[in-house]
Design a protein around this nucleic acid. Structure first.
Length: 748
DNA sequence: CGAGTCCTTCTTTTT
DNA sequence: GAAGGACTCG
């Protein structure tokens, strides 16, 4: 009934002066958030207070009241999941599929914008979007060219530095000497610049570039910015607390036009600071957008009263909150059960407990799709998977390897990239010897040398070497053949379209055959994925559109509506809800995560606490928190201490269950079994106690300085030549240079 | 050049 | 304890 796209006016038949149906279903706060349409608005929305509903209704309201056409609203989300959901719900309200909208993640929208203006940052509009793997490989090459010791200064750590700069909207030129950290003796900025110029040479952009480049373009080209100002009358932003500085700048630039910007967020759910997110963006909002109104959504319709009380009590331990109180809004909220805390002997027992309880729920007629197990880190899913398999409970893991990250998909895409973009060295390098063509390190090195000497792409260098006999015999034939194939496929792409071409490509290159020959268990699945890839191609007009989709949007979730338990990280669970939520692994060091606390101190701890808050508030009716006293990490068992978060939930809303009585004394048990060095105060001991830190061998408290003479029970005597964290580089008199953990040596 | 072996690291979270 | 990378040997 309403046009989904384009500039046709909306034939709104909202004629009645009475409130339209979609508004009357909102509570007064929500309604205020929807109807305060003009001017800047900040909506502080607690968990489960109908945030998405407000956003989508607001979107619809703008259209229904004819304030803008669908294409004149910019709606930004943080995740694809959120974007998809908003798209679906807007479509449902409109009664038609919503297409042609500027609705998507920050990155997807920026990719779209960058394709239009790529030339302003020295890219061609068909630029490639690199994934993390490509980024690291490229950066490593740059570092090696600059003769950086990549063992001492690893590419991923430099990538982190660069990414943080990009998160803050800093191009290499904008970085002052003072900003340059001491990474590789102050070479980070230069390496960043070199990396950026390599990206440009490859006609490629990494994830951070999408935001950075577009923001730079909007800053530098008032005409382009003005164009977007004309286009976007209204801006809607979801998960505002997770935006980083460059995203904030981007929004601010775009919102300068009409100033109709509505940001929805919850400072208590800010869990992405490690990615450069700045909660301060919420605080800046009022300053930057004068006259901004603020609406608070505090009625929670999701969870029972005890769950809300436990979550609220927990999050109250954080300082510097904007302050919101969640009120139970559900009619039956008061009838709910307390949050259950279960203490177990070890991680196996924890997995068993979760499995048993899920079986019980199932016997009681509880659908499995309404049960989730939320863990702190991806690796923790494994023990639960094993247990669920053992008891025959169907489950799905959400997150994990994405479609794009699978080797076969990346290979296939590299073939496409190498065909379409002869300058894409990374793609060429990836597949030049896949399947095996006898092109080894030596041949590749020759190509790299020629490429560098002649200042031409790798593929062009290869062509040259085939011609002038720089490559010989089998290698020459193989490379020559492949290069001819690239040209042929490129022709074919124009004549026969991308679907046929890609299918042919995978066939003729021998790539599919390679997997057919492969005897491993995964091979059939990989072939299936390749088929899926070709199938998916048909949904796109051209290869670029498809590649964008695959790298920015495509998710891993197999579409299946079967009744399954969901298994995912806490981060992955944001925005979702379930009747029953299991929250295992609440132990010091695991959750709160040790590294988060080591790296960010109290701020890190507070973010962990927010993560706990997010976890608890995913549950509608049952929240089962658990912790084990002993956990196997890598090969050895470690003794764990219950998470401080357990005590931070108000006791009156918590019930201890099962072997909880035992676990409640876990602190005492841990303390006594490890001797008097860990008194009861050990609750706050920041590090998990490791099993081999036996009594009688006290944890080392003094630092061993470089130059000290030390003794190691296995390697003997030696001299410390370097130190990093808890690892020491030692030159042993008999065993040579080794890197060992400091607790294994003592001063001689 | 490739297969096999040893060694290292991984365990934070995602677009 | 696994998986990926570096290194060695045939």
């Amino acid at each position: 009934m309403f046009p989904p796209t384009g500039n046709r006016p909306i034939s709104a038949h909202v004629t009645s002066p009475a409130s339209p149906d979609y508004l009357t279903r909102l509570n007064p706060e929500q309604r205020a958030a929807v109807e305060t349409v003009d001017g800047p608005l900040l909506v502080l929305a607690g968990a489960g207070t109908g945030k998405t509903r407000v956003l989508t209704t607001r979107f619809a309201h703008i259209l229904m009241t004819r304030r803008a056409f669908p294409s004149q609203v910019l709606a930004v989300t943080f995740t694809n999941k959120a974007a998809r959901e908003m798209r679906e719900r807007v479509a449902a309200i409109l009664g038609e599929p919503a297409e042609g909208l500027w609705l998507g993640t920050f990155h997807a929208l920026c990719a779209r914008m960058l394709r239009r203006h790529a030339e302003h940052v020295g890219l061609n509009s068909n630029f490639t979007i690199l994934d993390t793997d490509d980024q690291i490989r490229l950066l490593k090459q740059v570092m090696e060219a600059e003769r950086i010791d990549t063992k001492r200064w690893t590419p991923p750590s430099l990538m982190g530095v660069i990414q943080r700069w990009k998160d803050r909207g800093l191009t290499p030129e904008r970085i002052t000497a003072a900003e340059d950290t001491d990474f590789a003796n102050g070479k980070a900025r230069a390496l960043y610049a070199a990396y950026q110029s390599r990206l440009r040479a490859l006609n490629a952009a990494d994830f951070g570039d999408l935001m950075l480049h577009v923001t730079e373009i909007l800053r530098a080209h008032p005409d382009i910015l003005a164009d977007y100002h004309r286009r976007f009358r209204y801006i809607l932003v979801d998960e505002y607390q997770d935006t980083n500085l460059v995203q904030y700048l981007w929004l601010r630039l775009l919102a300068q036009g009409h100033r109709n910007i509505c940001c929805v967020g919850d400072d208590d759910q800010s869990i992405y600071s490690w990615r450069g997110a700045e909660v301060e963006n919420i605080l800046r909002f009022e300053k930057d957008f004068e006259g901004a109104k603020i609406v608070r959504l505090e009625s929670n319709y999701r969870s029972t009263a005890p769950i809300l009380a436990a979550a609220s009590g927990l999050i109250a331990h954080n300082e510097g909150r904007l302050g919101k109180t969640l009120r139970p809004g559900r009619a039956d909220a008061q009838s709910g059960e307390k949050v259950t805390v279960v203490g177990l002997w070890d991680s196996d027992e924890e997995a068993r407990m979760v499995g048993d309880r899920i079986e019980q729920y199932r016997r009681d007629g509880h659908p499995l799709s309404e049960i989730a197990i939320l863990v702190r880190a991806g690796y923790q899913t494994r023990s639960f998977e094993e247990r669920l398999i053992a008891v025959g409970l169907p489950y799905r893991v959400i997150g994990g390897l994405r479609f794009y990250e699978r080797a076969e998909i990346r290979d296939a895409i590299a073939y496409m990239r190498a065909t379409v973009q002869p300058a894409d060295d990374l793609a060429f390098e990836r597949i030049v010897n896949v399947p095996r063509r006898g092109v080894g390190d030596a041949a590749l090195r020759t190509m790299h040398e020629t490429s560098r000497r002649e200042g031409i792409p790798l593929a062009a260098a290869a062509a040259l070497l085939v011609q002038n006999g720089g490559l010989k015999g089998k290698v020459r034939d193989a490379v020559g053949g492949l290069l001819r194939d690239f040209l042929r496929w490129k022709d074919m792409l124009e004549k026969d379209g991308h679907v046929v071409t890609v299918a042919t490509m995978l066939d003729e290159s021998g790539y599919t055959e390679m997997w057919k020959q492969d005897k491993s268990a995964e091979a059939p699945g990989r072939l299936e994925n390749l088929k899926e890839l070709v199938r998916a191609l048909a949904d796109f007009e051209n290869l670029t559109g498809f590649l964008d989709h695959v790298s920015l949007v495509m998710e891993n979730e197999e579409r299946d509506d079967n009744d399954k338990v969901s298994l995912m990280t806490l981060h992955g669970a944001k925005g979702l809800e379930f009747d029953t939520v299991f929250l295992p692994g609440w132990e010091e060091g695991i959750f709160p995560n040790q590294r988060a606390m080591d790296e960010s101190g109290n701020a890190g701890l507070e973010e962990e606490r927010r993560l706990a808050y997010v976890g608890l508030t995913r549950a509608r009716r049952n929240a089962i928190v658990s912790h084990a006293q002993n956990r196997r990490i890598y090969a050895n068992w470690q003794s764990s201490i219950p998470s401080r978060f357990l005590e931070e939930m108000p006791a009156e809303h918590v019930q201890h269950s099962g072997s909880a009585a035992m676990a409640r004394d876990a602190r005492i048990a841990a303390a006594t079994s490890f001797g008097s060095q860990f008194p009861l105060m050990a609750t706050r001991r920041p590090r998990v106690i490791e099993a081999w830190e036996q009594p009688g061998r006290p944890a080392r408290t003094d630092q061993i300085p470089v130059g000290a003479r030390v003794f190691h029970s296995k390697f003997g005597y030696g001299v410390v030549t370097g130190a990093e964290d808890d690892k020491l580089d030692i030159r042993f008199e008999k065993s040579g240079e080794k890197r060992v953990l400091d607790r294994f040596v003592e001063r001689a």
